[in-house]
Amino acid sequence: MRRFGEVTALAGIDLAVRPGEMLTLLGPSGSGKTTLLKVIAGFEIPDEGEVYLGSRNVTLAPPAKRDIGMVFQNYALFPHMTVAENVAFPLQMRKVPRAECERRVREALQLVDLPAHGDRLPRQLSGGQQQRVALARAVVFGPSLLLLDEPFGALDRKLREQMQLEVRRLQRRLGLTAVFVTHDQEEALVLSDRIAVMDAGRIAQLGTPQEIYRLPANRFVAGFIGESNLFRAKVVAADSAEIEGGTRVRLPAGAPGAGADIGLLLRPERATQLSAGEVADFTIACKVSEIVYLGETIKYRLQADGGLDVIVRWPFRGSGATLAVGDRVTVGWDRDDMHWIHWS
């Protein structure tokens, strides 16, 4: 637990990173993910609780004694040192003999595909290259844990995607255990073995990207990850519930008993357009209020007759009947595509 004055930045965190996995701390700013990273790195000492690295209790150990490699938000490359000197720095601090130091720097630069850039200064490199140098510097001494603090924030979209894949490849290849901090859910879904979604200093959910996306554990995660329709509903019978506005829904198996207050999560891309008379487990008649072309898909914002806002998204095929604003449409979801959560 870490408190800053009145604010409790972290509370009740119980997190075990598995060897060789890439675990992402995902959350909006202020959710405590960076504080947690600092506690792991040793830049912050928790008010309560312990930090273990393997079997070693490092709660009070200074950063220098933790054997952790870190890639910083703005890379934190030393501007006055060449690329090679930057990468050699953690080795020199560990008193690695000169010859070995040079060899490992060479290898690390090879690894990040910058074999010929050793003599350059950081400011002579592009953003992506700087990122790679930071990565080489973080892994060169074979740390037992790699921490990445929003490392792609400064890169443009295309470069970011490329670097994400590179980092992932490198981490897998070296078998590194890594903790990655981001507020970008897409990035988290692409990169992670597991994701810890953080909210107000707590872990809201810990799971694989699929679990997090398909089966969010609570309203916060459901709202934070991906685009979704989340409707509040009351269970009225063993397998059916009533959404605000009176629409009846057939619930998936395992739903709670009658009287429970639940939320139903319906992903826009799982909706189907129903023709007249057709009925799904959840059927709702609407009017198109807004159309957004997204390239591969089209997003429709619909206004249900009961007043609900509904979003659906379908592949865009170029031809075929598309809807226009004001058109009436009936959409539905199968109960296998529904996910329920406790409302509170």
Partner: peptide, 12 residues
């Protein structure tokens, strides 16, 4: 941040 980074890399 550079100082923290150096410290994190094992510098006294």
């Amino acid at each position: 941040g550079l100082l923290a980074a150096a410290e994190g890399m094992g510098a006294s």
